[in-house]
Simulated assay, not measured.
Amino acid sequence: MQLLFLGTGAGMPSKQRNTSALVLKLLEERGTVWLFDCGEATQHQILHTTVKPRKIEKIFITHMHGDHIFGLPGLLGSRSFQGGEEPLEIYGPKGIKEYIEMTLSFSRTHLTYPIVYRELTEGVLFEDDSMTVETRLLNHVIPSYGFRIIQKPLPPKLLINKALALGVPKGPLLAKLKNGEDVENETGQVVRSRDVTEPEEPGFIVTILGDTRFCEAAIELGRGADVLVHEATFDGTAKKMAAEYGHSTVYEAAETARLAGAKTLIMNHISARFLPEDDRLLLKQMKEIHTRGFIAHDFSEFEWLHHDKKIRKKQVSHP
């Protein structure tokens, strides 16, 4: 699993930051990628990465403000032009279907693939054999949602050489052992699954929040998360302004991470008033409350280290 930030700015694009868009790369887990929000020019940002629009399986829209949705029509059209045929699921607040279909209709954009729309309601939004996605309503000036993505425990790993040494032949008996069943070897001796497998390991938990004031729902979504992506539009001196506009300060993002027990905090949706040289100040404020965290920039990429159970920032060159 990797997190790739395509846009990390607030409100409108700047020279340093594009508007909101974040890719959750699940290529190893399911051979696809998920996109969270799609601000203006998201497809231009994608051109500077290895992400293929036809690999986008799901799009999650946190809320209906323009800096989170204005890139959708162009991206959907390009996905079609580039040979995308697989169905696309779009999860979003009320109005997302109307917005997309009206825009495509008026621009006479024909898609080569079907779109399945899922209107957001609190609770479990999606679940299959490997992943669960939960959502809750946050506290913004319009309905805005956060998402908790949970990878289900990984299956036990079969120690095949150990099983073979105990007389289990290659074939279906090995599969039974891996699935937790005890078997008899060729001599009738019972071989226990627990003796030839490593126990299942927990998967990752990623929390991605839309725009929000400090609120209990954000804390609950981030509970015990391996990584929490939280907006930090303002620094700690602008608490009143943040509340007025439905946003959070760096201090509030860090406090949410601390109360949730999130292992790593990644702050994004940064106001254009902050330049790269302000990173040191913002990180200093964050570390007063939560010690492990990062400020995301456009094209920042973070990867999940499964064996170490932590998120690491990848060293990548900006385009």
Rank of each mutant, 00 (worst) to 15 (best):
G224T: 02
S300N: 05
G203L: 06
E244C: 03
F214P: 05
I219R: 06
R258P: 00
Q285V: 05
L209D: 02
Y245I: 13
I295N: 03
V206M: 04
F302S: 02
A260G: 07
E231P: 13
M267T: 07
S300R: 09
R280H: 11
H230L: 14
I270R: 10
F214L: 12
V250C: 06
G210I: 08
I205N: 00
I270Q: 09
A296C: 01
L259A: 10
F274N: 03
T291E: 14
T233D: 03
R292S: 10
A217C: 02
G210M: 09
T264I: 09
V250Y: 03
T256N: 05
D226A: 02
A242P: 12
A272Y: 06
T291H: 11
L209S: 14
A218Y: 02
A262W: 04
G210W: 09
E277A: 11
A296D: 00
G293H: 08
D278S: 11
A243H: 11
P202Q: 13
V250P: 01
I289L: 15
E277D: 12
L282N: 03
G293L: 10
V229I: 15
A260R: 06
C215I: 03
A254S: 13
P276R: 11
G236E: 11
D211Q: 11
A238P: 00
H247M: 13
I266C: 08
E255T: 12
T264Y: 05
K239Y: 10
T256E: 05
G224M: 00
H290D: 06
I295M: 13
E231H: 13
T212R: 09
H297W: 13
A232M: 13
C215H: 01
I270K: 09
L282Q: 03
T233S: 13
P276W: 10
A262L: 08
H230E: 10
E301N: 00
G222E: 00
I295P: 04
F302M: 01
A232C: 13
G210Y: 08
